[in-house]
C-alpha cells in the first residue's frame, strides 16, 4: 500500500468521524442536559458535561411531570403506546405475511391490480385520511379508544407489510408450492410449514418498520385518541408545552429520551436482521 492510499483512507475516516459526531451531538446534548439540575443548566454551557449527575429529572418525567392538567408523568401514556403498538405491529405483520404469500404464490385474476392498489395505499398522505377515518371510527364506536388507534395503524401499515412479504416470497420458487400441493398440503398448511419457517428476516423488517412507525406516530395519535388513550408522543408534546413558570429543560429531555427508547431498543436488538432482510432477495431475481 502506498502512502498516498493510506492518506486517502485516513481522510475518509476523518470525514466519517466528523459526520458521526455531527449526528451524535444532539443525543449528547439531550443526555447531558437530562442529567443536570435546572440550576446547572442556567449557569453552565450547553455542551459541558454535568458537574453533579442527578436522576431527578428522569423520575419526574416518568411519574410526576404535568401533561396538561394530568400530573402523572409519561408512565400512563407509555403504557398506552405499548398497548397500541404491540397488537398493531403483530396484526399488520400477520396480515401482511398472508397477503404477500397470496400475491407471490397464489396468483389470482386481477392480482396485479389489487397489488397496485395496496401499493398505492403506501403513498397516501396521512392528512388525507384523517376526516374519513374519524367518521369510520365514530361509526364503529371506536373513536378515542386504543382499539381505534390499533385499527388505524393496522390499516395504514398493511400496504407496507404486504409489500415486504410479497417481495420476499416472490423469490421462492413456485415449484415448492406445487410440490407441497402434490404432497397434499393446503393453503394454510403450506404457509405454516414451509413459508413461515423461512420468514425470520422479513418478519424482523416488518416488525421494526411497523413498530417505529406506530410508536413514533403523532398525527393519528393526536387526532384519534381520547383523554385516556393518548400515546406517549402526544403526552411528550403536552409535557413540553405545559410549563408553569420555569421551563424544565432537563425533564423535557429525559421525557424525550424515554419516549424514543423503545424504538432504539428494537433496532439494537434486531438491527442486523433488518439489514439482512432488506437486502434479502435482491441478489437473486
Amino acid at each position: 500500500m502506498t502512502s498516498n492510499t493510506t492518506l486517502l483512507r485516513w481522510g475518509l475516516y476523518g470525514i466519517l468521524i466528523l459526520f458521526a459526531l455531527f449526528y451524535l451531538l444532539p443525543l449528547f446534548v439531550m443526555l447531558t442536559t437530562s442529567l443536570k439540575s435546572l440550576e446547572e443548566i442556567r449557569t453552565g454551557s450547553l455542551l459541558a458535561l454535568p458537574r453533579a449527575i442527578t436522576f431527578q429529572p428522569w423520575l419526574e418525567a416518568w411519574s410526576t411531570a404535568c401533561a396538561g392538567t394530568q400530573c402523572e408523568g409519561l408512565r400512563p401514556f407509555f403504557w398506552n403506546s405499548v398497548l397500541m403498538a404491540v397488537p398493531a405491529v403483530m396484526i399488520s405483520t400477520v396480515v401482511g405475511a398472508l397477503n404477500g404469500y397470496v400475491f407471490a404464490q397464489w396468483r389470482f385474476p386481477g392480482a396485479n391490480l389489487f397489488f397496485a392498489a395496496i401499493l398505492f395505499g403506501c403513498f397516501i398522505p396521512f392528512q388525507v385520511v384523517l376526516m374519513p377515518m374519524a367518521r369510520m371510527l365514530g361509526l364503529m364506536g371506536l373513536a378515542g379508544t386504543i382499539p381505534g388507534l390499533i385499527f388505524v395503524h393496522v390499516i395504514y401499515g398493511i400496504g407496507f407489510t404486504t409489500l415486504f412479504f410479497r417481495n420476499y416470497y416472490v423469490t421462492i420458487p413456485q415449484e415448492l408450492v406445487r410440490a407441497a400441493k402434490v404432497d397434499g398440503a393446503g393453503f394454510f398448511r403450506i404457509f405454516w410449514s414451509i413459508f413461515l419457517p423461512i420468514s425470520l428476516p422479513i418478519i424482523t423488517v416488518s416488525v421494526i418498520w411497523q413498530f417505529t412507525q406506530i410508536w413514533n406516530d403523532f398525527l393519528f395519535g393526536v387526532s384519534f385518541s381520547g383523554p385516556g388513550s393518548q400515546p406517549v408522543t402526544v403526552a411528550l408534546n403536552n409535557i413540553v408545552n405545559s410549563t408553569t413558570g420555569v421551563k424544565a429543560y432537563n425533564v423535557d429531555m429525559a421525557a424525550a429520551i424515554i419516549a424514543a427508547l423503545p424504538t432504539l431498543l428494537v433496532y439494537v436488538v434486531a438491527g442486523k436482521y433488518f439489514i439482512r432482510g432488506l437486502t434479502a432477495g435482491s441478489v437473486k431475481g
Partner: peptide
C-alpha cells in the same frame, strides 16, 4: 393430492 400421483421437480423443490 387426490390423483394418486407423485412428482419430482426440476429444481427438486425440497422444503
Amino acid at each position: 393430492k387426490d390423483r394418486d400421483i407423485a412428482m419430482v421437480f426440476q429444481s427438486y423443490a425440497l422444503y
